Simulated scan of single mutants.
Amino acid sequence: MENLLTDRAFWVNYWEQKPDLSVNIPANYMFHEQLQKIIKTQQVQTAIELGGFPGYYAVFLKKYFDLDVTLLDYFVHPPITAKLLKENGLEEKDIQIIETDLFQYKPEKQYDLVLSFGLIEHFNDTADIINRHINFVKPGGTLFITLPNFKALNGWFQKRFDPDNYDKHNINCMDPKLLAGICEQAGLEVIQSRFFGYFSLWLHEEKQKPLMLRLFKKSLWLGGKILTKLFPFNSRQLSPYIILEAKKV
């Protein structure tokens, strides 16, 4: 339990406060170019999304690439996932769902592609959580992990104005070199481990924040977007995400 920065109650409360989780996932969903390249070049047929409830990326992979997809999470509310599938023209049988504790579960099979988005930063032991991902990867398969970069301006904003949410994240793991080193030590070939995205800024439960804070956030967001549109670049100071891609040889 000392490895956890969140617990089940946190996630139940987190998802219950979301007004409408059933959205139509577009073809240009975040990280679509990276995923498309992996799927085509590696001839991916099976994939598992870890910690991904309600299953946006599982739906994306099924909807646009017709992969054999599994969703695994500690908390799954089936009616929400069923509604999300229906919104995207899919049926409940199209995605296998495993509701379990990742730290107790032993993979029954391995996959061509193992993904997580915003998961590993909620644990203190980064090497341990990444190695649990690797246990699901087939030899020759690909590991793809993304996480927020709270060492950027967005992180300062979170720490200053939303410290409760900021404290739910392991800031030390937000280091591409650290992530690459863990994968290399596990015997994987690192394809990329880098800062990603030009600029973004967000607030957890933004609608509940004071008006002046929302206006301040919007002004920073607009300024950052204008700057990085004129001078587009990925950087530790501004990029909102980190992506890690590695292959099990």
Rank of each mutant, 00 (worst) to 15 (best):
residue 178 L to W: 07
residue 185 Q to V: 07
residue 219 S to R: 13
residue 139 P to G: 08
residue 127 A to L: 08
residue 220 L to S: 01
residue 164 D to R: 12
residue 120 I to L: 10
residue 226 I to C: 05
residue 194 R to A: 11
residue 115 L to M: 15
residue 124 N to C: 08
residue 194 R to D: 12
residue 169 H to F: 09
residue 139 P to N: 10
residue 160 R to E: 03
residue 192 Q to L: 08
residue 208 Q to S: 09
residue 121 E to Y: 14
residue 233 F to Q: 11
residue 186 A to Y: 12
residue 120 I to Q: 03
residue 217 K to Q: 11
residue 119 L to Q: 13
residue 112 D to G: 14
residue 188 L to E: 00
residue 108 E to Q: 15
residue 215 L to C: 08
residue 221 W to E: 07
residue 202 W to I: 02
residue 153 L to V: 10
residue 150 F to P: 02
residue 145 I to Q: 03
residue 188 L to P: 06
residue 186 A to H: 11
residue 171 I to F: 03
residue 150 F to V: 01
residue 153 L to P: 09
residue 140 G to Q: 03
residue 106 K to N: 13
residue 210 P to F: 02
residue 196 F to Y: 12
residue 215 L to A: 09
residue 144 F to V: 00
residue 165 N to V: 06
residue 166 Y to S: 04
residue 103 F to H: 15
residue 230 L to C: 04
residue 189 E to C: 02
residue 155 G to P: 10
residue 184 E to T: 12
residue 155 G to A: 06
residue 133 H to E: 01
residue 196 F to A: 07
residue 103 F to G: 14
residue 109 K to G: 03
residue 115 L to K: 14
residue 205 E to R: 11
residue 116 S to M: 13
residue 102 L to E: 01
residue 222 L to T: 05
residue 171 I to E: 00
residue 231 F to I: 11
residue 147 L to P: 12
residue 187 G to Y: 12
residue 140 G to M: 08
residue 134 I to R: 04
residue 165 N to H: 15
residue 188 L to Q: 09
residue 156 W to A: 03
residue 180 A to N: 10
residue 153 L to G: 01
residue 130 I to S: 00
residue 178 L to H: 05
residue 233 F to V: 08
residue 198 Y to A: 08
residue 122 H to P: 14
residue 151 K to M: 05
residue 121 E to F: 04
residue 225 K to C: 04
